[in-house]
Amino acid sequence: MKYIEPASLPEALEILSADDEARCLAGGATLVAMLNADLVEPSTLIGLRRIDELAGISVSGDHIRIGATTTHAQIAGDDRLTGNAAVVRDAARQIAHSAIRNMGTIGGAVCHADPNADFPGALVAANAVLEAAGQSGRRQIPADEFFLDYLETSLEEDEILSAVMVPVEPVGARGRHLKFSRTHGDYATISISLVLAINSGACSHARVAVGSAGPAPVHLAEVDALLTGSDLSGETIKQAGQKLMEAADPVDDVRGSAEYRRMIIPGLLQRAVDELR
């Protein structure tokens, strides 16, 4: 197995498209563990850490740009991530333990696309757009369309995720990533990512996604619409929770049965709303 650390994105893309068996290495939190367990055997590892353009957070106009190799810890610690983007920061803060947060990157987390991870739901709730770089240019993929299935994204094999763009709008919004797990630092049994804007008692914006509830974040436009414009009464939230629960398709595993996971969605949604109100 070869290891290369290109200094630029074009260079990295060239290596990636020349070799079907090459793979990007970001923080390595997941990939190195997979290598150790013999789950993957890439011919070449392309280390991304020297590519400056992939690193760091910047605010430009209507969005916040989070470079793919930005670590969870950097995201968790950046107080520019407010309003709509607060849900992403809140998710970063709750990933695993500090050792993992110091290593793992948002690019690695979303490209791995573990449905139990925290960023996928948060990015959907924040209406984020993922920027994919290929040799022929860049394309923008809404988070809703990025996460396809268990460990599967709409990123092409010869593309590298370059950044995550989180809209600044709506400005007065608040975000919460409510994570419920067996122990501190475990993956979520269920997570609720919620962005709400409330103007004089009424909800003017709502986006909610449920993580660990199926192969990809569960997001229903219908539910956002139900909440938006409502007074977020207990009855409304119950209805919203019911719909999300019906749409959820979780698995039975060591973290809980599918039935249990579905059952707690409405209550956790209510809690997330209460915490934001």
Binding site: R182, T183, H184, G185, Y187, V254
Partner: peptide
């Protein structure tokens, strides 16, 4: 055995 890893078999940590 379906949970022979520290990821799947959970012991309490400091925060718990």
């Amino acid at each position: 055995m379906i949970n022979p890893t520290m990821m799947d078999y959970k012991i309490p940590g400091m925060a718990d």
